[in-house]
C-alpha cells in the first residue's frame, strides 16, 4: 500500500476545495454540494486510517456517515425547495430572516 500521507493529502485538498465552495459560491445548492464534497473527503481520510490500522471500525463509521448524509440531503433539499417557493431565488444572501 502507498504511504498513508498520500491519501490524507488528497483528502485535505478536497476538504479545502469544499471549504472554498462554501465561502465563495452564493447559490445554496452549490453550498450544499460543497458540504457533500467535504463529507466525502472526511470519509476518505477515515477509510485510509482504517486501512493503515487494519481496523474495521472506521469503515463502519464511514457507513454511518454515508447514511446520515443521505438523510441530511433529503431534508436539506426539501427545505431548499420550500425556501425557493417562498423567495423565488436560491441566493444565500437573501436568507436573512434570523438577522437581529
Amino acid at each position: 500500500m502507498l504511504p498513508t500521507i498520500f491519501y490524507i493529502g488528497l483528502s485535505v485538498l478536497l476538504f479545502v476545495i469544499g471549504v472554498c465552495g462554501v465561502l465563495l459560491r452564493r447559490s445554496t445548492l452549490m453550498v450544499f454540494m460543497s458540504i457533500e464534497l467535504m463529507l466525502n473527503s472526511a470519509n476518505l481520510a477515515l477509510v485510509t486510517f482504517a486501512n493503515q490500522r487494519q481496523s474495521i471500525d472506521a469503515q463502519i463509521m464511514v457507513f454511518f456517515v454515508i447514511t446520515i448524509a443521505a438523510a441530511e440531503v433529503a431534508v436539506g433539499l426539501a427545505l431548499l425547495v420550500m425556501i425557493f417557493m417562498r423567495k423565488k431565488t436560491t441566493n444565500i444572501d437573501t436568507m436573512t430572516t434570523l438577522k437581529g
Binding site: 502507498l2 450544499f32 476518505l44 486501512n51 454515508i66 448524509a69 440531503v73 433529503a74
Partner: peptide
C-alpha cells in the same frame, strides 16, 4: 480510491448512495 484501500463494500455503498441517490436528488 476505496477499492485501492481494501474497502470493496464501501466502494459499492459510495456508488449506490452518493452517485446513485444523492446526485440524482440534486
Amino acid at each position: 480510491l476505496y477499492l485501492l484501500l481494501q474497502a470493496p463494500f464501501l466502494f459499492a455503498v459510495q456508488l449506490i448512495v452518493y452517485a446513485g441517490a444523492i446526485i440524482v436528488l440534486f
